[in-house]
Each structure stands twice: as structure tokens, then as C-alpha cells.
Design a protein around this nucleic acid. Sequence first.
DNA 1: TACACAATGTTATATTATAACAATTAACAC
DNA 2: GTGTTAATTGTTATAATATAACATTGTGTA
Lengths: 132, 132
Amino acid sequence: MLKQETLSKNQQIVLDYIEKVNEPIKAYSILHNLQKKGIKAPLQVYRALDKLVKIGKIHKIESRNAFVACKNSNCQISKATAFSICESCEEVSEISDSKLSKYLKNFQDKAGMKFNKYNLEFFGLCKKCSVK
Amino acid sequence: MLKQETLSKNQQIVLDYIEKVNEPIKAYSILHNLQKKGIKAPLQVYRALDKLVKIGKIHKIESRNAFVACKNSNCQISKATAFSICESCEEVSEISDSKLSKYLKNFQDKAGMKFNKYNLEFFGLCKKCSVK
DNA sequence: TACACAATGTTATATTATAACAATTAACAC
DNA sequence: GTGTTAATTGTTATAATATAACATTGTGTA
């Protein structure tokens, strides 16, 4: 079978919503907001999320148990993610810095482990919140 | 009051256990294994974990919802953590690489956000598992 | 002693995520 | 089209992770 190129119904519904809200959102919040569209059970959400994460359309912010749309149109970097998280307002931005990603992709640990993926989360205060 | 230097009873019990098992362990696994020592409720575990994370004695592996003892005797780096995680056997190692930590501490994102903390998780296959 | 605060104990509940199984749909080989 | 396979869906139930709320006890120090 060919690799799937189109999303299924539920996958598309969930992706549309995540892209619309444009900020990290939690699975049960997605569930509550998509009842009208036929998303009635947690599994419908989690299955769609799993798939969308797998194909790089969205990312999971691990420290927040939240999901956010990928900002890189081609979505080639789903295995190398970096985010900045404001600890005050919880704003999250995806970092795309070619030097950083190059550095991390090439990082070699002392045990000689071969990495195929990483996730980096920076925490601090965003500009707005650091003024307050 | 002076800054606390000694751990409380429950904090010490939980820390001793985490240090003993020497691998990432989940909160409810801690709970089940410490019934004899008087740890009977989730909150007793989570409160101790919160404190131990805060003072840098342990770290949370966010992608696994698990906790592991800090390997750095002085525990000064609790705000700058990096781990390697084997996706096959789930072995987790704390990475202490001064070049990496220096690079990340000094990283400046485009939005000019000031970071005071980061967590990095690398995924791949450990040496043992990549041979198989 | 009296005060302030950290830590504890306890019950209940919230939040996040998966198991199991049946039914349906989509893609492909022939 | 038919048969085959895999992906997706629907549904109910439950597992796993984490916190709220409140009363009580311990500990350091003025």
C-alpha cells in the first residue's frame, strides 16, 4: 500500500481545530470543543493525535501534556523539536534555529548511543511577562 | 526560618528508594513499593517528588512520566537537564556534557526570551539494543 | 510559650490515557 | 468486480497519572 497522503475524517477535524486555536491545547479540551463534529470519546481524539504526531503535523509539549500545530510547512522536523515555554503565561513557541538543530542532530554522547530524535524545552519568561 | 537542609521523613524514604532502584520509576510504582514504610497515599509520594525535584535531588523524565535520581553529587544542574532514552529497552541516562550545557545555557532565541531552565531528551537505541 | 511555616494524613476527585472488541472503510492485487 | 489486508471508526469500560481540600502534627525560632 502507498503511504497515506490524505488525512482521515477525524484526523482532519482534530488537526483543523489545533491549527485554528494556534496555541497548545489539551486532549480533553479538544474533545469538549469538537462534540458537535462527532468527536465524542477520548479515543477518537487520542487516535487522531497519535497519527498527527507521527506524521509531524503536530507536536506534543511533554512538560504540559498539550499539543500544538507544527509551524514548519513541510513538517520534516518532527523528530527534532525545540520549544520555548513561558512559565508565567504558558505561551509556547516552536524554535526553528538551524544552528541549534544542527548542533543537536550531531551531538554524540559518551556512551556512543545513536540518536534519531530529540525534544528540547526551554523555560523562562517571555518578553511581555518579564516586563511585568 | 533557615533554608531546609535535611529532608523530611517521607522525602527521605522516597529518595532512598529512587536512588536504590537506579532507573526511572513511576510515582505509583514508588507508592506500591513503599507501603511498608508508611507511604499509603498518592499525595505522600507526589509531595515528596515535588520537593525532591525542586531541590534537584531527582529529575522528572517528562516523556515517560518517570523520576530518576540525579547523578551529579552537587545537584546544581537541576535547571539544565539532558537525558538519553533508549526507545527499545527504555534505559535512561543523564547526560553531563559541559559543552552541551554551556551551549544550551547561552542559547538565545529570536524572540529574545530569557531562559532560566531547559530539559532535553534524546531518543534512540542504546548500544546493546542497536546490536540486536 | 507562642508564632509561622513545613510537612503529614486522609478522603475524594480531577486529569490524562489506554484496553478490548466489533464494525466499517479504503487501497490494492488479481 | 472480488478478495485481501490494513487503517479507521465507534463504543464501553477502565487504567494510570496527578491534584483539591481540609484537618492535624511537627519543627525552628523569637
